[in-house]
Nucleic acid binder design. Structure first.
Length: 265
DNA sequence: TAGGCCATCTGGTCCT
DNA sequence: AGGACCAGATGGCCTA
């Protein structure tokens, strides 16, 4: 469609299509020409005769429109279209806002997450954060509990054991990382496979920044685009990292309520 | 060239 | 009545 020409090469989801110019675009595009030529006249005739009591678009509801001239109807149609366009632009802005807070690298050389990928990644990110929070709470209570217990019994600690706190963050959080990288609940029923044969990052600018953000080598983006969250193609295992896949590390029950959130209607 | 993603138009439905 | 929301249809762009 012609209006696509207004989009940037990065295929911004919120093209700067001024509403004022929308009319000219609309009148110029093929869809409107087809609409005008093929449908509208007959449609208008039908409307004038009130063949369909409930008529057409949201703004064109009653037989009262039969009194409207063709120009008025076109204006109405343009108004409705403009509102819908604005609504979709607002939706896309919100989607962009979501992308900005996602653990996904931004930049001109990085392809933007698709809408569906954004939503799925957001969901998994929330799951991961919830899981991490629960684990943090648990670890803090464990540490303080143990500390309080040992405090009374402890006399003198040798310097070597002066760093007693468990190496918690990475190890303890890795189970929940999988919920970010690939939870299966809402997306696929394909079993996760352990794959170690995938090539490492060869396309840095096009690779998934998500894993990079988490300190992992990132899979190529084309894999990401085919399977944005690496759900069906298998989970990558990283050298030296404990396996965070859901086969080995199911999500804690504390996030179970989040699992019930449906992505669909 | 097929498939994915997207913007836009459109008509229907629901809400205020 | 008017606007918001939704889903289907359509066509363009891009990539593998």
């Amino acid at each position: 469609m012609d209006s696509d020409a207004a989009s940037t090469c990065s295929r911004s989801s919120s093209p700067d299509l001024a509403v004022d110019s929308a009319a000219s675009v609309f009148f110029a595009n093929k869809m409107f020409q087809a609409y005008s030529g093929d449908r509208e006249l007959g449609h208008l005739r039908a409307e004038k005769n009130c063949d369909r009591p409930h008529s057409s678009a949201s703004g064109l509801k009653s037989c009262a429109e039969a009194d409207l001239s063709k120009d008025d109807l076109q204006d109405l149609r343009l108004k409705v279209n403009s509102r819908e366009r604005k609504r979709m632009h607002d939706l896309n802005q919100a989607m962009d806002g979501l992308r900005e807070v996602m653990p996904y690298a931004q930049g001109p050389s990085v392809r933007k997450l698709s809408k569906i990928s954004t939503l799925l990644l957001a969901r998994n990110y929330i799951l991961m954060l919830s899981s991490s929070l629960e684990e943090m709470k648990k670890l803090v209570s464990d540490v303080y509990g143990a500390s309080a217990q040992s405090h009374s019994a402890r006399r003198v600690l040798p310097p070597a054991s002066a760093a007693p706190v468990p190496q918690l963050p990475l190890l303890s959080l890795t189970p929940s990382l999988h919920s970010l990288v690939g939870s299966t609940s809402a997306v696929t029923v394909a079993p996760l496979r352990h794959t170690s044969t995938q090539p490492t990052v060869a396309h840095a600018p096009r690779s998934s920044p998500t894993a990079g953000y988490l300190g992992f080598p990132a899979p190529p983006l084309h894999t990401m685009m085919k399977d944005p969250l690496h759900l069906s193609s298998g989970y990558r295992h990283f050298p030296g990292m404990p396996c965070p896949c859901s086969l080995c590390q199911p999500l804690p029950a504390s996030t179970g309520c989040l699992h019930s959130l449906s992505m669909g209607k």
